[in-house]
Design a protein around this nucleic acid. Structure first.
Lengths: 200, 200
DNA sequence: ACCTGAACACCGTTCAAGT
DNA sequence: ACCTGAACACCGTTCAAGT
């Protein structure tokens, strides 16, 4: 190994960081424990000293993808739904920054192994916007389902195109789709303020 | 030998049907080509005589899951968005009827290998509801992203719970989430009628 | 045309053994 | 504590050969 520099201590964070680098270079299907071992300069079995399983590793990768994403400051006069739109665009940018990033984050979020970091702020913004407390969790999931689902769709279609599969469909407009979801959220908030029932 | 008595011919449809049965019994992770061969009483390599690859098979499985789903008749006085709600509930019922059904349908749809069957009717209903033509495709994808994303979430959490992973979150309310998306669609339709810009 | 039998090139995970 | 080396029990896919 010419110029092999042995790192003093390998920690879990090193394994996760190497997994991110590997994901960026080769994509999720080639992010194998063997390839990750090679990336770290150890046997694949050594990885299990730092993470319990590949799924747990991917949960940490999902969290790191979100943590590395942008976090733009809202304008001073921005309302809660304006800030929410900004956060959704930031989350989208975060998952699009890595190949299969939306796949990793969405599946780990659904599996309860990661991807929870945007939830608290999204829910808080929905509450500020006037969404009734009993519907905040559901509304937050609806917003994030759209953001992740749209990004997943976009990355999958790009991957399919690379694999030579005809898709024929034009890419869907994120801004318009998010506008639809946020308009529905606004209706739910106004409905809550008026003391009415669910939107329908 | 037309008309001659011979062993039952295995066709592609038989392979797909057997894959559905196997999916129902063991779930997607255990739906392997070897297990499918055993289900059909042939070697795994024989399956490749009827389908090009496992991905192509899963595309056909996705289409079949949707085709086997319910298709309720709308009431005579139902408007386009009422019918759309009914269709969304039907699609949801279809994918929830099989373990990992939402995963299969969503990923094959995103990959362009199946799951396209609800798109035409959803888009037609959105057009009838007054969504501007240039936004119909995007609105349709937004609706289906929600339906698939919600079902995927629900099935994943159930699977995580079975695997002993703590999820803590209550299941999100489908009716409320769909109400949010449809309220946003209505706002887009009214906006289109008023000649205004995108909702926001 | 349809299928077998065997192989190829991989996986994630485990574990006794080393240091 | 951290890692090696080797194995275990699998994958999807290919292909010459049979019928």
């Amino acid at each position: 190994m010419p110029g092999a520099t042995r790192r003093p201590v390998r920690r879990r964070a090193d394994v996760v960081a190497a997994a991110l680098d590997l994901l960026a270079r080769v994509g999720l299907p080639d992010l194998t424990m063997r390839a990750l071992g090679a990336e770290l300069g150890v046997q694949q079995s050594a990885i299990y000293h730092h993470v319990e399983s590949k799924q747990a590793l991917l949960g940490a990768v999902a969290d790191e993808i979100l943590a590395r994403g942008p976090r733009r400051r809202p304008r001073a006069d921005a309302g809660p739904l304006d800030v929410l739109r900004l956060r959704c665009e930031d989350v989208r940018a975060a998952v699009l920054a890595y190949p299969d990033g939306a796949d990793v984050v969405m599946s780990m979020w659904a599996f309860g192994l990661g991807g929870r970091s945007p939830v608290a702020e999204v829910d808080a913004l929905l509450g500020s916007a006037g969404v009734p407390a009993e519907h905040v969790t559901t509304a937050g999931r609806t917003v994030l389902h759209f953001v992740y689902g749209h990004a997943y769709d976009e990355q999958s279609r790009a991957q399919a195109a690379r694999a030579g599969i005809v898709t024929a469909d034009a890419p869907a407009d994120f801004a318009t789709g998010l506008g639809i979801v946020l308009a529905g959220v606004r209706a739910l908030a106004e409905d809550g303020r008026a003391g009415g029932s669910q939107p329908g």
